[in-house]
Amino acid sequence: MELLAALLIGLLLGVGTYLLLERNMIRIVLGTMLITYGTNLMLLTSGRLKTGRAPLLGGSDIQTAAEGGGGIVVDGISYVDPVPQALILTAIVIGLATTAFSFVLAYRTVQEYGTDDLLELRGVEHE
């Protein structure tokens, strides 16, 4: 399962990097999106995939919880590590805001210069 996830992460990062090297602005922004997805998946995989039950613990369970095997163990039953999921949630929100802003910025740049080809947007020194 982890191998499959690793291959998928590799694919996402690879396609994202390929798009980054394009000259078309929208493809570059889409490339950063794919790279962001790849890293989110990597965060998920860092906590190991499906090592036990959903991590819903009661008040007294927390006292006896212990770390083990990439998750949490309570009374011999293992639960999934919830931390990476919390991290991804934060990363997704940040990724959303950044992507939205970059689309707006790209759109305004195209409006201003009339082109979305980054080779033409190199700019001369200090106009």
Binding site: M42, A91, T98
Partner: peptide, 12 residues
């Protein structure tokens, strides 16, 4: 954005 993604990979 790309640098931040690498940051997350390192954190992971």
């Amino acid at each position: 954005t790309v640098a931040s993604s690498i940051f997350l990979v390192a954190v992971a």
